[in-house]
């Protein structure tokens, strides 16, 4: 199953809706592009079926790219499996730490 990323710009908010499988076979060469003046990036996981460590690497790229542009990152639509995985590897701690740290 492929990965589909739908991007919607709503004012200063960029919504990235992830659908399908975000893994080693679908994410090769992923480079997030966050338009200038974006104040918030919302990543919507509600249509994502599976994510592996390579997919988490892509999420980290989004988090760090947004942070470099002073944009906040918010997750929506996380199911329990992804929540547990993100909690184990430390994704939420990274979000929290960058939020506190600012630029």
């Amino acid at each position: 199953m492929p990965l589909h990323i739908e991007e919607q710009q709503k004012g200063h908010t960029l919504v990235l809706k992830l659908a399908g499988v975000m893994d080693y076979s679908t994410i090769d060469g992923f480079e997030p592009s966050i338009p200038e003046k974006t104040g918030e990036v919302v990543v919507d996981f509600s249509a994502l079926d599976f994510i592996d460590s390579t997919g988490i690497g892509a999420i980290l790229l989004i988090i760090h790219s947004a942070h470099e542009q002073d944009a906040a990152v918010k997750f929506t639509g996380l199911d329990d499996n992804i929540k547990e995985l993100f909690d184990t590897v430390g994704v939420f701690r990274i979000l929290e730490s960058l939020r506190k740290r600012g630029r």
Binding site: L60, D87, T88, V89, G90, V91, R93, I94, S97, L98
Partner: peptide
């Protein structure tokens, strides 16, 4: 005990 992955922060 939980912590951030190496390379995360």
């Amino acid at each position: 005990l939980k912590g951030v992955m190496i390379g995360g922060l």
